[in-house]
Amino acid sequence: MLFATEIKRSTQPETPTGSLVRISLFIPCYNDALFPESGKAVVRVLERLGHAVEFRDAQTCCGQMHWNTGYLRETLPILRHFLRVFADAETIVAPSSSCVAMMRDHYRKAAQMDRDPALEREVEALLPRIFEFSEFLVRRLGVEDVGARFTHKVAYHPSCHSARSLHLDTIPLRLLHRVRGLDLVPLANAQECCGFGGTFAIKNADVSSAMLADKVRCVLNSGAEVLTAVDTSCLMHIFGSLHRQRTFVRTAHLAEILACSDDDAGQNSTLAPEQHDASSFGRMVR
């Protein structure tokens, strides 16, 4: 059974509770600097559902880039910093499946590298408290309808870590199905990697670009106006090509779609009209 449990271990159990939760946000480094709108959208959705959200200013990064590129030793101080910042956070939510996968798949091993039992214990204490955003909504809160309206043709790209590491399965689709006005269109070869892979896109730029070309062709063939995913990293990659080719397909993190609603226009909104223009969303259509 050892291998059977190993095969499925990174899935959070589906035990929804209706109660209000105090949520500590982890906004991954690239989301913070490059895609602040995805973070704002997460805040908006969670607050609209009545939960308290906090953001710890000391946070930085999960260490994924270093770990995946082979800088294993260099990952450890980043991991330790993460654990310190979120030591007493009740529930941590991150709008990035690959960061959560980094923690679930690799933090144990990273902690073992340091031969520090205290660190290993801290990792074990962290893992049950960290959730990817859509997983948190459905598996933890038991919510599928977040009261969103988004009247566009949307295709969903199941990013590799969300599908194969977190096993989100239909979770993001269930959320999208409940968005009013949203026309969900199928994406061919959806499960195939877009070719991002962090530093892979730079170290193997040609192969990465060829993979991306295949992905972009499927996106364009889908007829979608907007491509969504639970990782802005993949979306950044795909949009990089969509933009280079002067197409009019936009990309948006799932949270940005779920944040769109008509009942809270103007109030409680993190996306005030003038900010909306400046958002990644706005910039992309220009």
């Binding site: 590799c160 870590h161 499960q191 990697c193 070719g195 892979g197 892979f200 896109a201 193997n204 990465s208």
Partner: peptide, 8 residues
């Protein structure tokens, strides 16, 4: 390094 670590 010849992998995007997609996990397939």
């Amino acid at each position: 390094y010849a992998s995007s670590l997609c996990g397939a």
